[in-house]
Each structure stands twice: as C-alpha cells, then as structure tokens.
Design a protein around this nucleic acid. Structure first.
Lengths: 314, 314
DNA sequence: GTTTTATATGTTACCGGTATCAAAAAAAGA
DNA sequence: TCTTTTTTTGATACCGGTAACATATAAAAC
C-alpha cells in the first residue's frame, strides 16, 4: 500500500502538504496541488481511513440500533440497511448492528423502531444519533411522508370510484400511524365523506379475521386502505375466502412496498417507501452530525410513490 | 477514554506488559497479571480497536458481498446479517455491504449468492473469503444441510401418510438445489417410491401456475415438498383456488422458515434454516481465516429444523 | 560458584495519518 | 527600500496500540 509519505516523497513536499491537498485543498497553491495530485494518481494512492480515524479519535463505525422486534418487520429492513450501508461506505464508515438498548462504541447511532417510551433512554445517550421514523420530541429524523402516502392512496381509491373507503390501521399510538390516518381522514373530508377506521396489530391473520368477522358491513364497491402490506395481505385473503371480487368489487391498498406486495396474489397496489434512499439519507445525516459535533440536523420527509397494481381497479 | 498508558502507569509497569496481559497473558507472571488486571478493572479500560487495527495493518471491517439479486431474496438475509453482525462485533469488527463484484477494502469477505460461474472471479480475490452456500470447488463454506432438510421433510410427509409425494424444485443447476433434491430422492427410494420432480424459478406466482395447469395429475392425498417457502406459498394458493383441502387432502412443506411461512395462511410447515447461527459461524470463520492469514477452514453444514405447522396433517 | 540458558519485562521504533506551531515566502503598507 | 502582515509550507509530536529487540532476572547446567 502506498502511504502519504510515498506521495510526499514523489512530489517533493512534506506529508502535511499532501494531507492538506486531500482534506483542505484551498490551503494549498494550485501549482503544488497539481503536482501532488499527479503523484497520488501515479501511485494510485488511497488514504488509510484507519489511521485517519485514530488521529481523529474516531472509530469509523456507526451503530444501527433496532429497537423493535425484528421478527415482525424482517424484510422491511433489508433495503434500509443497504441504503445505510451504501451511504456510510462512501465515507469509509462501516456498520455494527445492535438489537437492544445496550449500545456503546461507534461514533454515532442510527436508531429505528423507537417508540415514545424510548425518549428517556435517548436523552441519556452520549453520542450523536438520528432516528428513522417520525417523532414529536424534536429529535432529528428521516421518514417517509406517511400522511402524503395515505393521501395518495385514498385519492387513488376515490379516482377509481370506490364508494366506500375504509382504513385498517395499526393499533399503536405512534406518530407514523397518526400521520397515515391523518392522510386518509384529510382526503376523505375534502370530499365530504366520513372516515371509517379499524385498528389491529400488524399481522396478516388478524386482518383476515377482522374482515371476515365484519364481512356483512362491507358492501361491494369498497376499498380498504391498509397501514401495512401485512395487513393488506390479510385483507386480500379474507375477501377471497368470502368470494369477493378483487379488484372489481373490492380494492385493497397496502403500505410499504417491500417484498410482500410482490408475493401476494393479486399483486398489491401499495404506497411504496423508498427505503434505500431513506437509508442513504440517514447515513448522510448521521455522518454530518458526527462531523458537526452533534449539531441539530432537523427533520426530513421523503415522498413515497403509489405503486398501482392488481389489487385495485384498472 | 483511558489508554494503555494510563493502565501502565497505575500498575507501575510498561505499556507492553499491559498489552501482553491482554493479548498474550501466558507471557506474563500471574502476580503481575493480577495487578494489571486490577488496574484495568479500576480504570474501566477498554482497548482502542482502531489503534490496534492500525498497528496490525487491518481495517477491522469485513465485507458482506451479496452476489444474487437482492429483490428476490430480501427477507432471507436479515437473520443472516444479524448473526454475522453479532459474530463480528464480538471481535470489534464491523460490516460493510457490497452488492456487486467491485469489492476492495476490508480484511476479508463473506460472500453469499455465489454461483458456479463466479469461480474465476473468486480465484482472483486477494483477500481471504468464506462462502455462504454449498460449492463443489473446495472453497470454505457454511450452509444449511440441505439434503438433510429435505430428508426430514420427505420422511415427515411419509409419516403423515400422504400417498403421493412430489418435489417442486428451483430451476437452478446449483449444489444447494441438487442437495435438496437428493434428500427427497433418497428418502423416497428408501421406501421404494418413485420420485417426481417439477422445477421452476423461485417465484410464488410461477408455482401457482404450475400447480394449476397440472392440477388433474394431483390426486388427493398428495404432499408437495417445495424447495422454498416462496414456492410453497404459490402451491398453497393454487390448491386453495382449486378448492383442495389443506392439510387433509394436500400437504405442503416449504423450505427456509423466514417470514413467509408465518405470513401464509395456513401457516407453512417448513424446513427452517437457522440463519442467525449460520451468520455467527460465518463471522467466526472469516475472522479465524483472517487471523490465520488465509488458511483453509473447511466446510460446515448446519442441521435445519422441521417446523411443523398448519399446511400438513395433524 | 561460575557459566549457560530460559524467562520476564522494558525500550524503541513504527503503523499512517493529523493538529499545532514555527519558519519561510509573498503581498501589502510606509 | 524596509517593515509589517498575510499566506504557504514544513517540522514535530501525537493518536493508542504492537512487533522486535535489548536487558534484567531467575533457573539450570557444569
């Protein structure tokens, strides 16, 4: 491996000048810079990030802390993780995973699955962190625009002329759920329709049961806006068991667009979160925050995309 | 942060002695060792792995290289990844992900989704690597015991008195598939039954089509041994559409036991891979190989578990 | 009891960068 | 032209460990 010193020798300058060309180019005269850059090029120099990390008292590691139960959310995280990984490795950072609250090590944290009850734990963390997922405590976060997502879904159901539009939510008192419901409610009210919301835990079998046991309440020409693809899959199964026609008499729209929507039959119309991009942004945000010694980064909402498929008309 | 020097000072020894207590304890007399250990304890000393990495010309990073298309395998990897992450962080290693063949950086690679055609690429890698997944080229690997898995599945179907036992495989000429088929074939032949194998790409909708278009060939009292849960899900849907009774007249057994088996209805009987454990072992193996400067590590097969559920009798 | 050998600990230099300050060169002001 | 100020570059020490060699001490051999 070629080192700073090798480059310095080749360019007839000191190590510091080379280091400056890399990290503070404006502090070096253009002529010297050229020479040094050529030397780097010729020697195919790549900085040793470990040495740099040591000098900066860093680890070059970001911890991904997953607070919620992983079994219930598995496929969801892959794309997020890939995005994070990509974003981090651009800056020569690597990931460590933590599933519990026992963190330590690493230069900062990306935290997912945080609930309102985690606030006090978050407050006592001594490293910078950013959250994946809305929160109302002022912590920096990035999330899908949940409200917009369900607005798109609800509006689409209206456009497709479903008469009755029902929301099947996740039974959790968390911002993401409130936002999704708000998107649904707002859109209906804009059309002077009355919202109708059911809430269950996020399992397909519970959704299936719910729909079946309330089947008589659902006349044909109904569209179900579901707060997750899991729920949507359950709803689809229930409708099929009751011999309802999808998408003619019943529409189903999911939320997430991760894996399940494709495995389902009919394939789900769903609000697709761009989790890869979210991951990249999370990585960028935590790196920025580390560099800026913990400075506030704010909140970012990413537009989801309504992915039209076989579980709605047309 | 307390450093080696702090501990050394407190214990009235040199840095090297402290370093030895940590890395080569047998080179230090028990009395001194005690003193140093007490000092470390009192100062709550934790070695700085970055400094160590620099001294060893290491990065303390292992790359996870995923060669296959991630979209088709998503949920599958989460547990593997968690296992790997856990195994690595025990030794203060972190992960970087790579999805293509353009690797570089890191002390070694864990490679998944490798196919026979990747052999030449693997041969030109200049860092130690281990594979997740059987191969016949002599590369170190860890995998589920695929053959045993389908032996268990087939035997279970026999025990449940299904008369006809059919294998729906994945249409790939790869060792994992051959092993799964071998497990099925062996078990049937032991009972003087004739194997019957279909092969398709690993998609639920293709499985569904396959079963439906061959429906008349399948008399009641048939069990389908599927090479993946994806396929199993498609088979289940097909049977349901044909109004076949699961599990009374038709049994379905999947393979993987990751996520899909639980989301399905009925929940799938499946051969569950212990991917978390596989991941931990992969981590341990690559770390060992790095430490031993690339020495051969051999092959490891992990016993899967037949998870009995609603898609088979009883 | 002296020499040889083995064992235990310390000294030094180095891994590959970076911050800090000092020195030199260039630009500005008198 | 000679200071004074500003900009550019270099020398040094340090980040926190470790390997290799040197030295001191204890055990073994003669």
């Amino acid at each position: 491996m070629t080192t700073l010193s090798d480059v310095a020798k080749k360019a007839n300058v000191s190590k510091m000048t080379v280091s400056r060309v890399i990290n503070h180019p404006q502090q070096v005269t253009p002529e010297l810079r050229k020479i040094v850059e050529k030397a780097m090029e010729q020697l195919n120099y790549h900085p040793n990030s470990v040495a740099s990390a040591l000098a900066h008292n860093r680890t070059n590691v970001v911890k991904l802390v997953i607070l919620e139960d992983i079994d219930t959310t598995e496929p969801y995280y892959m794309n997020l993780l890939f995005g994070i990984a990509k974003g981090l490795s651009k800056k020569h950072y690597a990931i460590q995973l933590a599933t519990g609250r026992d963190v330590g090590g690493g230069d900062g944290y990306i935290i997912t699955g945080g609930r309102a009850t985690d606030a006090e734990w978050l407050d006592q963390l001594d490293k910078p962190f950013v959250l994946f997922g809305e929160n109302r405590f002022g912590y920096d976060f990035i999330d899908t625009d949940n409200k917009l997502g369900e607005q798109l879904a609800t509006q689409y159901a209206l456009n497709k002329n479903y008469q009755s539009i029902i929301f099947i939510g996740i039974d959790e008192k968390e911002p993401f759920e409130y936002s999704r419901e708000a998107g649904y409610i707002n859109t209906l009210q804009k059309h002077n329709m009355i919202p109708k919301i059911f809430r269950i835990q996020n399992h397909s079998s519970l959704a299936e049961k719910l729909i079946i046991s309330n089947w008589k309440k659902f006349a044909p020409n109904t569209c179900f806006i579901c707060a997750s693809d899991r729920i949507a899959v359950g709803v689809v199964r229930a409708i099929q068991r009751k011999n309802g026609n999808i998408p003619r008499d019943f529409g189903v729209i999911g939320f997430d667009g991760v894996f399940l929507d494709q495995v389902s039959n009919p394939k789900l119309t769903t609000v697709k979160q761009n989790l890869f991009k979210l991951g990249e942004l999370l990585a960028a945000m935590i790196l920025q925050k580390i560099k800026q010694d913990g400075a506030q980064q704010g909140e970012v909402l990413i537009e989801p995309e309504l992915r039209k498929n076989e579980s709605t008309r047309n």
